[in-house]
Amino acid sequence: MSEHGNSGTPEEIGCLESIETLYAYLDGEIRDPADIAKIEHHLGHCRSCFSRAELERRLAVRLRAAGSQQAPDSLQERLKDLLRRL
């Protein structure tokens, strides 16, 4: 990894720090733009971490498709009725 000392260039992080924050980043839980920039800068320069991130993105899509459950109509009707009576 080369040093990045220019202003405007995100601070350089290593693979371990990238892995530490990767899941929170992919799950949209990193809110500080500077932290996001650091991770994205690293992913743009590190093939291994980029591959890991791609894998995790694909896996997240599969996970959502594999297990999500819709509330049955009967429950929606029950709740509507419940809220009418409350």
Binding site: S68, Q69, Q70, A71, P72, L75, Q76, R78
Partner: peptide, 19 residues
Amino acid sequence: MDALYSVAMRLTRNRADAE
């Protein structure tokens, strides 16, 4: 609503109990 039901299913593992 779907998320709430989904979590309830996760906890109870039973549709009637989840509802």
